[in-house]
């Protein structure tokens, strides 16, 4: 049985039996911005899934938050909330949103973003490759030690796993949950 630590932001990396991956996707549509979060074991099996209601910043909020709005929404409001509310702790968080890399400032867990194509994301972002991902990975340059931690965790994942793959599942599950009225219920 997978351990369920009391503090989900504390990765159980010391336990070789527990290497869980947290996949965070941020979706924007007509209803606003919302997130889906899937925790899997080291070979991609789902352990826990959580999603948020949509948030639609008003004009004043857009002005007041200014350029920090996107990171606030992706990393703080949606990402951190999802990780903290989820009982299964991840050893590594993978996201398809570059602004959600800011989650790393808020949690003691390495965070990587999957990047399609060789995009130059600026000096704040470093890129890396790994056999467990069919696409480029990115992480925050201000956490240089994370690279070793990310590599160490990815090396322990089953070779059948591709970090870019679960996002299709999550989006489909989000669509299914919304179709069944889950998000309106949560709201």
């Amino acid at each position: 049985m997978t351990d369920t630590p009391s503090d989900p932001t504390t990765p159980p990396a010391s336990n070789p039996h527990t290497l869980n991956l947290g996949f965070l996707t941020i979706v924007q549509d007509g209803s606003g911005v919302f997130g889906g979060y899937l925790v899997t074991n080291s070979w991609g099996r789902p352990l826990e899934f959580r999603l948020t209601t949509a948030v639609q910043p008003n004009r004043v909020q857009q002005i007041l938050y200014g350029p920090t709005l996107t990171e606030y929404l992706h990393a703080e409001l949606i990402g951190k909330t999802l990780v903290e509310k989820t009982s299964v702790a991840p050893s590594l968080i993978i996201t398809d949103s570059l602004p959600a890399l800011g989650l790393r400032d808020r949690l003691q867990i390495p965070v990587v973003a999957v990047r399609i194509g060789a995009t130059d994301d600026g000096p704040e972002i470093l890129q890396l490759t790994h056999p467990r991902s069919s696409v480029m990975l990115a992480y925050l340059a201000k956490y240089p030690d994370d690279k070793a931690a990310i590599d160490e965790r990815l090396d322990r994942i089953d070779s059948a796993v591709d970090l870019a793959e679960p996002f299709a599942r999550i989006r489909e599950a989000v669509a299914e949950a919304r179709k069944m009225g889950v998000t309106s219920r949560a709201a």
């Binding site: 352990l47 948020t52 989820t86 070779s159």
Partner: peptide, 25 residues
């Protein structure tokens, strides 16, 4: 301030004897 609400589902976990550590690459 902005807030979101969440809803989640926890799925059955593998039994311990089948939840082996991944073999090193």
């Amino acid at each position: 301030d902005m807030t979101v609400q969440t809803e989640g589902w926890k799925f059955p976990a593998p039994p311990p004897e089948l939840d082996r550590p991944p073999r090193p690459m």
